[in-house]
Every structure is written in structure tokens, then in C-alpha cells.
Design a protein around this nucleic acid. Structure first.
Lengths: 126, 126
DNA sequence: GTAGTTGCAAATTATTTGCAAGGCA
DNA sequence: TGCCTTGCAAATAATTTGCAACTAC
């Protein structure tokens, strides 16, 4: 636990704003002006891999396109990344309440399932 | 509706694999070897803006970090992108069934709410 | 002393944009 | 004719990586 890692952890814990790597970098730089962005990325990765902080965000940073515009849901294979359609019978989205701030207007949600596709499941067996 | 745009639309509609922009590019190139990747991006954007195809993917392509590792859900302001915590009382994730393939193992899900934060709601009024 | 960590700079990846030339209405 | 679109190449943006110097135990 180096000085940098500790400062990065404190920065993430010290705010409730779910900062991006770059925002963490800016925060840490106020106390340690010489930290490098690379160090911030490396430590955020290590801290979240160890369950000390949580990583929010896209499993994959690529846009995908679907010729089917009817509303439906997707599963994403967490091994190879492929995306398939799923049927979800009778799903009613839950009500969400923003903590401490009633003026937040919640207008929608997005949901995606995670799994292992047949091909990757088979490879794992071997 | 140019020749390129039509080929891009057909490529997306012709597969059920939810292709990335790059995969669409490769498909279109088989018939139109001179298309440029820029054209593919531009047309995918236009087609999805017009509701002709659907864009799947992250609202934002940046990782965010959360010092709170307890399970909870988030809202993302669709104007400024900020992320806040929400409480979701008693939510049981729905059952999903993969179309035409029972061997897909679904192991989890991710859900995020969308809305407008108080700050952006106020700016919109003015 | 040695394994892990740092700062820096260059590399990667996905995507966007500027621009001059071309095509369709 | 004039606006939209194209191909190309350069620009951006987020993130990763190679490397030599350094630090903690």
C-alpha cells in the first residue's frame, strides 16, 4: 500500500460522485502533484480487482447495432463478449428512489443479462 | 438513401449478431470494397437516430469508480452524465430465456436507471 | 536484495471530424 | 446549382503498456 495507492483510495472513498479515472487523477493531484495518470489507472484496476472499490461502467466500450427495433433484452457472454437476444416474460421495472434528493426525475432504465454462451461453456469444459 | 447507406442497413438487418461498427464495416466491404470506416460510422449514427436500427451500448464510454462496495443501483443523468445512488426496495431480477438456445447459462444482470438530475432540470426550465 | 511500483512517453482502440471531390435532386 | 454524402487522413479520447528508475519490506 504505497502513498499513491492510499491517496487514490481516499479520493474515491471521499466523494459520492462516482468519479471517472480522470476525475480521480485531478483529485489526487491536489495532494500529490506528481502522480501520473498511468498510476491512477493501474491502482483503480488493482483496487477494484480486490473488491476494495467498485468499478461501474460498460463491460465493453464498443457500440453495437441491432436491426431489430422492437423492444427486447440482451445477454452478453462474459467470456467472448457476444450479445444475444433473450425473452423476458412479464417484467415490470422496479421503482427507484434517489437518495436524499426527490427532485431527480427518473425516466427510464436499462437492463442487460450476463452469462456464458454455449461455445464458451464448451471450451471451458475442455 | 445512397448505395452505401443501403448496404450498411442490409448488413445490420442481415445478421442477428449485434455487430460492432467494425464488424459492419467488414461485412459491407465484401460488396463495396471501397467504403470507408467513417462512412459506416456516419450512417450507423444516422440510421439509429432515425429509429431504423437500434444502437446498443454504453451511454458513456468511461469507467467510473465507487467507494461504496455494498450492492446498490444507480441513476445516470442523461443530460450531464452524472451518476447518483438510488434505493430500489424489494427487487427480484426477472427470468430471461435465450431465444432458440437453451445451453446459454445466464448468471447475472446489470441494471441502471436513466433520468434528469435536479441541476439539469433547473437549467432546462430557463 | 528483490519484487512490486512509479512517472513518463509512446502505443492502442474506438470513434469523430475536416476537407476536397463526387453524386443526386 | 446546391446540398448531402463520400473517401481519406488526421484528430480525439480513454485507456494500456514498455521501460528504466525507485521504494518498501
Amino acid at each position: 500500500m504505497t502513498c499513491q495507492r492510499c491517496a487514490i483510495l481516499e479520493a474515491v472513498r471521499g466523494v459520492s460522485s462516482h468519479p471517472t479515472a480522470d476525475e480521480v487523477y485531478e483529485m489526487v493531484r491536489e495532494n500529490l502533484p506528481n502522480v501520473s495518470l498511468g498510476t491512477v489507472y493501474r491502482n483503480l484496476e488493482i483496487l477494484s480487482a480486490n473488491g476494495i472499490i467498485r468499478k461501474l461502467g460498460p463491460e465493453e466500450c464498443k457500440m453495437r447495432f441491432d436491426g431489430n427495433t422492437k423492444k427486447h433484452y440482451h445477454v452478453r457472454c462474459r467470456v467472448c463478449g457476444r450479445v444475444d437476444d433473450v425473452d423476458v416474460p412479464s417484467f415490470l421495472p422496479p421503482k427507484a428512489r434517489v437518495r436524499g434528493n426527490g427532485e431527480y426525475k427518473i425516466t427510464g432504465y436499462s437492463m442487460e443479462f450476463t452469462g456464458v454462451c454455449p461455445r464458451c461453456a464448451k471450451q471451458k469444459q475442455a
